[in-house]
Design a protein around this nucleic acid. Structure first.
Lengths: 117, 117
DNA sequence: AACAATATATCGTTGTACGATATATGTCAA
DNA sequence: TTGACATATATCGTACAACGATATATTGTT
């Protein structure tokens, strides 16, 4: 039940989280996954099977671009933000704040109306 | 694009919004929809085709219960919270706060890292 | 040699939100 | 009085994101 809730919560903000990690500088999938997981504590368990298609989608959207790195034995695909990506972070961050404020506006009086536990 | 983002954002928190409206007292679908839309400003366009299945799902979950009202010409199905519903609001409100804090924790430094527009 | 960690990728399943559509009653103006 | 609009609930097919499982290959550890 709680897992379902968390999973659905992630939808719509996961893109923004990944883009935010890239705002800190170029990075590759495996490390991005770790960064998001660390930031998420026990809330966000980002799966590889979620992340890689997500990165492909963002690239197809033109908000990130990639470059293969074969210099090490393990090949890595580095991603970085495009100008459109930076714009999207700013836009979606505003959207997110507006959305969160809206939830709070509904939630706060509701909790107040609930009988004290 | 932005519409897509908003749509996905709603997932996972829409149940909580509907339950929150019911925390204010029993209500029926059509008015619940209005309440959520009003609270959401231009962010949340809750569709009837979303709401009614959602209410059925919540009832099947045992967090709300319904009663038909035929006293007026237009029949209305009134919903109210069950004790499990009140518990769920409290639980998911905590989850939501945790989640929102986590997004902020990622978002704030990212925005700071972005070149000033 | 066996196993864990690193690293990317795809595939089928699940579940939610959407728009369209259906149905029916009440209200108000032309 | 007829037509339009708001009220009121419901279902259906579609789209799509996140999941878990699986595949593949390299590097580090025991």
């Amino acid at each position: 039940m709680t897992e379902r809730f968390e999973r659905e919560l992630m939808r719509g903000s996961l893109d923004l989280m990944v883009l935010s990690v890239l705002a800190d500088g170029a990075n590759y999938g495996y490390l991005i996954q770790k960064r998001v997981r660390d930031a998420g504590g026990d809330m966000i368990k980002l799966q590889a099977g979620t992340l890689y298609p997500l990165l492909h989608r963002l690239e197809a959207d033109g908000v990130i671009k990639s470059k293969w790195d074969h210099s090490t034995g393990r090949k890595r695909k580095w991603y970085e933000l495009t100008p459109a990506g930076r714009r999207r972070i700013r836009d979606q961050a505003l959207q997110w704040d507006k959305y969160a404020a809206c939830i709070q506006r509904i939630l706060t009086p509701a909790l107040a109306a609930l009988p004290a536990k």
